[in-house]
Design a protein around this nucleic acid. Structure first.
Lengths: 245, 245
DNA sequence: GTCCATTTGTACGTATGTATC
DNA sequence: TGATACATACGTACAAATGGA
C-alpha cells in the first residue's frame, strides 16, 4: 500500500524557507499590512520572521519579478504602487483574457460547474439586497476566479491571478461604490445565461464587456477620488504637496 | 543645467550584480547553451561568472518566478522543459492576446508604423522566395513583437514576451517546416490588410486565426516528431526508454 | 549503510551608497 | 558643506541536511 504523505511532510518537501518567506510577505502586502510605497527593510523582516537575511533577499527577488515590489539599487525594496495607467492596461488585458474564458466555458462547462456558478450569482444578488458590499466583493473575486479556473488553462489561471494581485495594489479597490452593485450583479446574471446557452461569442462578449465596465467603474471612481483630493489640497492652500513625492 | 547622466553611470545605478547574472543566465538558456532539463549548479555558475553564490541564488529565484527554471528542494535548479500541454495553453493564451493587439492596432496604428510593418511583411515574403527559413523565423519574431509593442499596452508587451520565452523552451521550435512558410507569410499579408483597413474585428480575427494556425502547425509538427521518435525506439527494441526519465 | 557532492541556511565582515542633521 | 548613522550589496566561511552512488 502506497502511503498518502502527511500534509506537513509534503509541505516540508516542497517548500524551502525562501518560498515560505515569500508567501508570508506576499500575504502581508495583499492584506494591506504594508501599504503601497512603504519600505520593506530586509533586516527587520528577517528578524520578524525569525530567519536570516538570505531567504528574505531571495524572496524579494521573487516578489520583484511578480510585480509586487520594486527594488531600487542601494536603497531597498518598496511595495509597488500601481499607477493608474498601468491599472488601465491590466484591465484591458484582463478583459481580453475573460473573453477567452467565456468562449471556452460556453463550449465546455459541465452541469456541475454551471450549478456552482449559479449559486455564486444567487449569493451575490442576495448580498446586493442586503447591501453587503464587502461580502459582495469577496463573492465577486471568487466568481471570476472560479470561472477562469474552470476554463481549464492553467497558464491563463496563473497569469490572471498575478494580474489580480497587482490590481489589488492599485489605490484601494472600490468596494464602496454601493449603488453600482446592482449593475454588476445583473451583468453576472447575463454572463451566466450566455455561458449556459453555449453561445461562445455571446459568452466571450458578455465577459469582455463586463470587464470593461468594471474598468470604467474603477477608474472613474479613482479619478473622482483624486479630484476630490487635489481639490481639498487646493482649498488648504496646497499644503498637501509635501506628501506627494 | 540639469546634466544628462553618463550612460555607464546610469547603467551602474540601475543594474545590480544579481540582475546582470540573471540576464546572462537567461540569455544562455534562451540561446540553447543549457538544454531544457539540464541542471544549473550554483557554485559552477558563480565561478564561471566570477561572482559569489549570493547573486546566483537570487538570479535563480527570478528565473524560477519567470518560468524559465524549476527549483527542486535540496536537489537544485533545472532548465524548464515545457510540456506539450503547457505549450498548447500558451498558444491559446497568445492567440487571445494577439486578438487584442489586432483590435487596438486597427484603431490606432499610425502611417509610420504601418510602413514599418509593411516592410517586415515584404522582407518575409522575400525570405520565403529565397527559402531562407532561419531568416524568416527571425523576421517573424520581430514582426509579432513589434505589433504587440505598437499596441501600446506595456503590461501586455511584458507578458507576451515572457510567454514567447517560455515557448522557446518547448522542444525546439519548428523553424524547419519550410513548406508551410508560404501559408504563414500569406496570413501576415492578410493581417496587414485588416489592420490597415481599420476594421477592428477583422484585424483581431486575423491575428487570432493566425496564432491558432501557428499553434496547429507547431503542435502537429511536435506530435509527428514524437511519433517518429517512439516508432524509432520501438524498432530498436525500445532501447531509448532510458533517455525519457 | 556509508561516503561524497550539493544544497540550504546562518553568521559575519567590508565596502558603498543614501539620508539626515 | 561635512559628518554621522544606517541599509544595502557582495563576499566568505561554516554547519546542517539531503540525495545519490
Amino acid at each position: 500500500m502506497n502511503a498518502v504523505p502527511h500534509p506537513t511532510i509534503a509541505l516540508l518537501q516542497s517548500s524551502s524557507l525562501t518560498t515560505v518567506v515569500q508567501q508570508e510577505i506576499e500575504r502581508a502586502i495583499l492584506q494591506g499590512e504594508y501599504a503601497p510605497g512603504s519600505k520593506l527593510t530586509e533586516a527587520d523582516l528577517a528578524q520578524k520572521l525569525g530567519v536570516s537575511r538570505g531567504p528574505v533577499r531571495e524572496a524579494f527577488r521573487m516578489l520583484d519579478e511578480a510585480g509586487l515590489v520594486r527594488t531600487e539599487k542601494n536603497r531597498g525594496v518598496f511595495v509597488r504602487d500601481i499607477p493608474i495607467d498601468e491599472a488601465v492596461e491590466i484591465f484591458d488585458l484582463r478583459a481580453s483574457m475573460d473573453e477567452l474564458v467565456g468562449r471556452k466555458l460556453a463550449a465546455n462547462i459541465t452541469p456541475a460547474q454551471l450549478k456552482e456558478i449559479r449559486a455564486l450569482v444567487d449569493a451575490m444578488e442576495k448580498a446586493v439586497k442586503a447591501e453587503d458590499a464587502y461580502n459582495y466583493h469577496l463573492l465577486n473575486l471568487k466568481f471570476h476566479d472560479r470561472l477562469v479556473e474552470m476554463a481549464g488553462n492553467s497558464k491563463l489561471t496563473a497569469i490572471y491571478r498575478k494580474l489580480i494581485k497587482e490590481l489589488s495594489l492599485f489605490r484601494r479597490l472600490n468596494l464602496a461604490d454601493g449603488w453600482l452593485l446592482p449593475i454588476s450583479a445583473n451583468e453576472h446574471r447575463q454572463i451566466l445565461k450566455a455561458i449556459a446557452s453555449g453561445d461562445q461569442d455571446a459568452a466571450g462578449r458578455a465577459m469582455f464587456d463586463h470587464a470593461m465596465d468594471s474598468k470604467e467603474r474603477t477608474i472613474d471612481n479613482d479619478l473622482r477620488r483624486q479630484a476630490r483630493a487635489t481639490e481639498g489640497a487646493a482649498s488648504k492652500h496646497a499644503k498637501a504637496e509635501h506628501a506627494e513625492r
